[in-house]
Every structure is written in structure tokens, then in C-alpha cells.
Amino acid sequence: MPELNPPRLADLASAERTVIEDLLRALLECENRELEATETQLVGLSGVSRETATTKLARATELGLLIAEPSGRWGFTEGGRDEAIRVMRAHRLTETKLARETGLAAERWHEVAHTAEHRMTQSEVDALADRLGNPRFDPHGDPIPTREGRFPAPQDRPLLDWSPGQPGVIAHVEDEPAELFARLVAMGVTAGLRFVSMREDRGVGLFIEGRSLVIPPELLPLLRVRSLHPEEKGPVAGAIRLSDLETDEPGEVVTLLPSCTGSERSRLLDLGFVPGSRIERVLESPLHGPVAYRVRGTMIALRRPQADHVLVSRLDSTRKPL
């Protein structure tokens, strides 16, 4: 039921609304991470100054969004949680859109989405979700709440707690601070990739889908990982990226990496880049541009970043064509 109190969140001046919405999101994050929702905690998570936080938390209580519990912790009202979820949904959907449809650099997604999340109405958020085909996860690997407000609790833990030698999946890549996130993006580390970890002197060594990397210590806190689901296959030994496949060396597609999302993913799948497809590198373009591969009877040209998304295994070249 909508509150009968006259002012509603949508009616506030945009500056005030932005601060309150940031606080609501911070509280939602506390709930998900099972943290104590004290004022200090909320200040830390939202990046709002303490004085502003004090007045705006009071204002949010007035608006019927929050409840101050006697223990000094904060809690949601029903309406408050809905607003928080709308903002989170807008943020994650916007990031998904940016990842799929624009060429915007990954480290700038957060900033753009952060502005957009405070400007979108519920119906705009829903329309965006429909247009994107109601995705379930955003590019960082986080679940996007449904319009009914449902989303599962995360089951990940920090990479630092992971025991070496064990295969796992990168579950979440934190996008703040942006410059550290940009380094991870440049290394090709994105949510959904499978890895095997090894301790190294200068950080943690990860063997990720056919490539090995060393993650320096300062980047480690940004990564959260999870173990493989029972139906998931572990990392494939001997697999390489399609871009590393050489001419006259037939290969077989192992999988399309999760770093390839949205329309690009469905396009590549539809073109036949599915596990088990035999694939050959057939034509180089001049100036070292795209490379054409023959897959399922058709020649498809891909640029290097696209070919990096395809994991293949080398086939014995004496084997008969499929």
C-alpha cells in the first residue's frame, strides 16, 4: 500500500533524493552481506558524509522508508525495501545495458549507472529489463532483482580465502576503485570465468580459461569467488583461446566464455560457436585485422577481442572432418 504521508521519494529534489537512495542501497547491501546496519556502516558504504547521513536518515524515517531500531541499527519498512530494490535494479540493468550495447570502457560503467539509477522511474526500469530480455546477472556477476523484488543471496567469498589448487569460478568483480577495476578488466578478468589458483610470491597466480595470470596483492580484495556448481564442468586442460589457434590446426569449440554477453553471445552461439563445433582458421585480413574462421560450413570473421571469448581445444589434424 502506498503511504498516505504527502511527500514521496519521487517528489523530492533530486539532490536529496540521490542521497536518500544511496543510503537505502547501502542498507540493502548490509542486509545481503549480513553486516550490522549501524550509521557508521551506512556512511562507509554509501560514501555520504556523516552529518548529511544523520539528517537524511531522519528524513527517510519521516518518509516512512526506514525504521530506527532501539539497538541503533537501521531497518527497512516494506516500501523502503522496494525503493532500494528499484535503485539496485536500475543500477545493475544499466550496467548490463552499457556492457552489452555500448562500447563504453568497463571502468566507466559504474559512474554512468550511478547517475542513471536515481533518474529512472519504475516503468523505465521495467522497459529496460524487457528490452534486455530480463537478464538475471549483471556484468559483475551480481544478480539483478526481478520486478517483483526477488533475487538470491550471494554465495561467494573473497579470493584471499580460497585454497590453492582448487578450481572455482570468479563470482564478483568489484568495480570500485575504478582504476584498480580497470586493471583487472585489462587483464581479462571478469565474472563467470573458471580458474585454478596457485600461490605466487607477488600475489595469487590464476590459471583462467587457457591463460595464466598473476593477480598482484592490491587487486585481490576486488575479487570474490565461489565453488563450481555440481552441474558445472571444471576448467579444461589444454584448452586455448580461439585467437591463439593457428592456421591449418583444426580445433573444436570447448565453450564460449561468460565474458561474452548479450546480443554478441547469442549471435556467436547462433553462428555455431557452440561446444563440439569443429573450427578452423582460414583467412587473415590485411593489416592484421579480423580473422575468418570456418565453423559449421560458413566463414565468419571475428576481431581478436571476440575470438578471445571462445575457448577451443586443438584437434588432431589427421582426424576426419566432422
Binding site: 550495447e101 562500447g103 546480443s263 560458413t298 566463414m299 565468419i300 570473421a301 571475428l302 571476440q306
Partner: peptide
């Protein structure tokens, strides 16, 4: 344009050579 108002890198590419 791709350095200013339409900033970004090419996001998708696949070209069929019929």
C-alpha cells in the same frame, strides 16, 4: 565521434563472409 560524444570501443563484431 568515438573520442567525444560517442566515446567507447567497438563492442561486438562478427562478419559473415558468404
Amino acid at each position: 565521434l568515438s573520442r567525444t560524444v560517442l566515446r567507447g570501443e567497438a563492442s561486438t563484431f562478427s562478419l559473415e563472409l558468404p
